[in-house]
Write a protein that binds this DNA or RNA. Structure first.
Length: 904
RNA sequence: GCGCGGGUAGCUCAGCGGUAGAGCAACUGGUUUACACCCAGUUGGUCGGCGGUUCGAUCCCGUCCCCGCGCACCA
């Protein structure tokens, strides 16, 4: 036993020590060869060069809880960790670094050299987040860590491409895509977010050809695309313009006559009811353009500046600057009518946070596989979503699913395994569509480059990062692992990537393995700041979890975050600036976890100070247990049962609350306080030993239950208190299915619980009264009891200790002097004689207040009972309950009135 | 516009047909043989508004108002 334990728990070293012990013992390792039932979970791979956020803390704590709980249930557990190469995010970081340090762009140094730098960057900064997860205590099988650009993983990604190309699901085509002028790449629809903008609506006029002085008024938010107009469109049923259909309008610059056409798509109510059609720069216009065979004039460069087609004066000018210039120019020409303030939604690139540009370009697309099967899997609950409502979001997306643009004009990522025969490369690359049928031998699509690769040119593009991570649940596993652990059991992730990742994994799972990739998906809360804003890097409103761990401990952070994160709604994380210091902050929610750890620590200290039996001993027979022993043991069984239920419903917050309340309130505040008397030198040694055995039983079982939430401190205390048999790790101890209280006579248990409750209630009332007379700390106060139950005498010593009384006298005949404060308890009427200290008026006030409350309650109950509809229709037990309560209150009121009278 | 979630004590959240809860904050008192990261006690609530169902509604239904999110989108 250790010499001296510090008064306050210091998590730092303890947490590090246990993590390395777990690693040394290979306690996280998943063995595919055991016969145990499998439990598996794959980590949502974080960005390899990213850093930990509070969202990760929540997400990974939940996974760790599930994994540790499954181990304690005797399952063979695989929690497979790894990271994602995160195409755009990582590439932009490397590019930024390159610019900052060498003043060069990626094209200056070339593809190979840039990729070298990227790998260097990955080696240097990658893995920080993995270290952070380890700090949190995550019990992943670290030997199985994977990266989406590992050789074997990359092969599977490319194989996936080849597979879909061969089956005709992947094709190349010229389409309108979301173009990011900052990252210079196409994006999928999911990567575009709509943002409301304070824009302007420009009203301008185009002259009608051959009708000098006659104009068509047009409203637009994007005058800078005017140079790409190839028609003007009106609704065919719009009488105002019908006679103009088929005529021409004059585009002011570059000056040209463009047709006035009719299209159903135009809303006569909007603006002037006339639309300028710019097929190259708007999705809807593109459709109209195709339908009407219009010229497609692309006036923008990839980076969002205007090109030569826009006219010499605009070449090289940024799109937003050009907007101003065009507006001024129209004004000078007398063609600008007015400009209105206008709020509209504009698509932004999620990553780069710049407005995206609809742009026609040649891209690779995937027609999603196994859509109906994947929809059915969720609607039939073969894959269970929790909370269930996300299934609706999923279904809605799946119903409206669009082909996926999978090519990215980046260098960091999986390069598309397509080679074009050199002499036809240009032709093929610009062909309006490419697929297996049309290209024959001039296209090489394969895992391996062509043998005569000098005659071929590989496609420049890489694949969308999600095109690799959708294979994650199985591509991370070798054959043997897959046999044992696939399909996985649970997936824990944020609802914000339900389309990006979850839906796609389901489709890939069915396509490549013929099975669901996971049985359950648990969607976490989203952590927001004090003001309800999502935590984000740009806002700088996310505290660094490592700072929190350093300050409060990983266990404290884990526990706290689980206690505030409800299932299914967002949660606010509070960080307050410290009043008395300038730099520090306080996180009251995390303090709660720290305080709880400290409570555990001190309860253990208290236990250790008592000495006594070493290791875990057999509980004595129920007849040798006190009512408090029986009560706490029975509550322990209830806790165990309730926690089982909560786990099966994934109610993590509920579990945390139950653990907290049981330990702090039931175990420390009530049980430990009531047995302290047996630890005195003059106490009965048998009682003492019994109490210690009960403490150990409860404590050790409790630590097992708490372990998934607070793994480090539970190991530490398990060891300190000698609960670990032969030095076995707590995390390897299986939960016992047997309740602690194995009794035939449940009557005894019920009786103990009732009596314990009665003593607790009497204690509370005695404390109230003491506090009322400012005697809370006075330990010499004497009480008299007129007992109403026979057994009361046996428990007076405990009542005395709990209520902090000096002495409690039992007397059937005690006659209180007038004005003696009196109170009612379940074990009888009690008096607190004060000899001269009595404040009669205060006492009257107190009793009157109690009478008021009792009368109010009684009135309510009487009201209910006097309603025949209630007595007729309410369930008998509810009626009986109210009848009982009525009697209680009546009796109580009588006694209170009597007490009041005694005062006067 | 469509869909989803939320509005309970000053704050963060439980409860979801039958006597309104916890932690923090505030206030009062406390070095009682673990813990001031503590102990005891107190204060604080027309459970967003209005209707309905029910013997009974914070809880179920309808409707409206606020907040958040997703999808769609008219230039």
């Amino acid at each position: 036993m250790s010499v001296e334990i510090p008064k306050a728990y210091e998590p730092g070293q303890v947490e590090e020590k246990w993590f390395s012990q777990w690693i040394n013992a290979k306690a996280f390792h998943a063995n595919p060869s055991t016969a145990n039932e499998h439990y598996s979970i794959v980590i949502p791979p974080p960005n390899v060069t990213g850093v930990l956020t509070l969202g990760h803390v929540l997400n990974n704590t939940i996974q760790d809880i599930l994994a540790r709980r499954a181990r304690a249930e005797g399952k063979e557990v695989l929690w497979l960790p790894g990271t994602d190469h995160a195409g755009i995010a990582t590439q932009s970081k490397v590019e930024k670094h390159l610019r900052d340090s060498e003043g060069q762009g990626r094209r200056d140094i070339g593809r190979d050299s840039f990729l070298e730098r990227s790998w260097e960057w990955k080696e240097k900064h990658g893995g920080i987040i993995i270290k952070q997860l380890k700090k949190l205590g995550c019990s992943c099988d670290w030997e199985r860590e994977r990266f989406t650009m590992d050789d074997d993983y990359s092969k599977q990604v490319q194989n996936c491409f080849v597979h879909f190309f061969n089956s005709g699901k992947i094709y190349r085509g010229k389409r309108m895509v979301n173009w990011c002028p900052s990252s210079l790449t196409a994006l999928s629809d999911e990567e575009v977010i709509m943002k409301p903008q304070q824009s302007k609506l420009y009203y301008m006029r185009y002259e009608i050809a051959d009708r000098e002085g006659e104009f068509l008024e047009i409203a637009t938010t994007r005058p800078e695309t005017l140079m790409g107009d190839s028609a003007v469109a009106v609704n065919p049923n719009d009488d105002r313009y019908s006679e103009l259909i088929g005529k021409k309008a004059v585009r002011p610059f570059p000056r040209a006559e463009i047709p006035i056409i009719a299209d159903e798509h135009i809303d006569p109510e909007f603006g002037t009811g006339v639309l300028k059609v710019t097929p190259a720069h708007d999705k809807a216009d593109f459709e109209i353009g195709i339908k009407n065979d219009l010229e497609i004039i692309d006036v923008l460069n990839p980076d969002g500046t205007l090109n030569a087609l826009a006219g010499e004066e605009f070449e090289g000018i940024d799109r937003f600057e050009a907007r101003e210039i065009v507006s001024e120019k129209l004004d000078e020409m007398g063609l600008l009518i007015r400009v209105e303030e206008y709020e509209n939604n504009v698509g932004y690139s999620e990553r780069a946070d710049v407005p995206i540009e609809p742009r026609i370009s040649m891209q690779w697309f995937l027609n999603y596989p196994k859509v109906s099967e994947s929809m059915a899997a969720v609607s039939d609950r073969e894959i269970k979503f929790r909370p269930e409502r996300w299934a609706k979001t999923y279904a809605h997306w799946m119903e409206n699913i669009q082909d996926w643009c999978i090519s990215r004009q980046l260098w960091w990522g999986h390069r598309i395994p397509v080679w074009y025969r050199k002499d036809r490369a240009e032709e093929l690359k610009s062909a309006p569509s490419l697929d297996k049928e049309t290209c024959g031998d001039d296209l090489h699509v394969s895992l391996e480059p062509p043998s005569d690769d000098e005659n071929w040119i590989q496609d420049d593009d890489v694949l969308d990062t999600w095109f690799s991570s959708w294979l994650w649940p199985f591509a991370t596993m070798d054959e043997k692992t897959r046999q044992k652990f696939y399909p996985t059991t649970d997936l824990v992730t944020g609802p914000d990537i339900i389309f990006f990742w979850v839906a796609r994994m389901i489709m890939a799972g069915y396509e490549f393995t013929g099975q669901r990739p996971f049985a359950n998906v648990f969607f976490t809360s989203i952590i927001r700041d004090k003001k309800g804003r999502k935590m984000s890097k740009s806002l700088g409103n996310s505290p660094d979890p490592l700072d929190l761990i350093a300050k409060y401990g990983a266990d404290a952070l884990r526990f706290s975050i689980m206690r505030i994160a409800p299932s299914g709604t967002d949660v606010r994380f509070i960080e307050n600036k410290k009043k008395d210091s300038d730099d520090g902050t306080d996180c009251p929610q995390v303090e709660e976890g720290r305080n709880f750890a400290n409570k555990l620590w001190n309860a253990a200290r208290f236990r250790q100070m008592q000495g006594g039996p070493e290791g875990l001993c057999q509980l004595p027979d129920i007849n040798n247990l006190s009512i408090y022993d029986i009560d706490i043991l029975s509550k322990l069984d209830t806790l165990t049962e309730e926690i089982n239920t909560s786990y099966s419903a994934y109610k993590f917050q509920e579990i945390a609350n139950k653990l907290y309340d049981f330990f702090w309130s039931e175990f420390c505040d009530w049980y430990l306080e009531s047995i302290k008397q047996y630890f005195r030198d003059d106490a009965d040694p048998d009682r003492r030993e019994t109490a210690l055995i009960v403490v150990d039983t409860v404590f050790s079982r409790f630590l097992q239950q708490l372990h998934p939430y607070m793994p480090h401190i539970t190991e530490e205390l398990g060891e300190k208190l000698g609960f670990a048999e032969n030095g076995e790790l707590l995390m390897r101890v299986c939960l016992s299915e047997e309740p602690v209280m194995q009794v035939l006579d449940s009557h005894l248990v019920e009786q103990a619980k009732e009596r314990t409750n009665a003593i607790h209630e009497a204690t509370t009332r005695a404390r109230h009264l003491k506090a009322q007379y400012n005697l809370a700390a006075n330990r010499n106060v004497k009480f008299y009891l007129h007992p109403s139950v026979e057994w009361a005498k046996e428990e007076l010593e405990t009542l005395k200790i709990l209520s902090g009384a000096g002495e409690i006298f039992v007397s059937e005949t005690y006659e209180p002097s007038a004005g003696t404060p009196t109170f009612l308890t379940p074990i009888g009427k009690m008096y607190m004689p004060l000899e001269g200290l009595v404040d009669i008026e205060a006492e009257k006030k107190r009793i009157t207040k109690e009478i008021d409350k009792a009368e109010k309650d009684l009135k309510q109950i009487r009201g209910k009972l006097s309603n025949p509809k209630f007595t007729e229709r309410a369930p008998a037990e509810v009626v009986q309950e109210n009848l009982d309560r009525k009697d209680e209150f009546k009796k109580k009121l009588d006694q209170l009135h009597e007490m009041l009278q005694n005062l006067s």
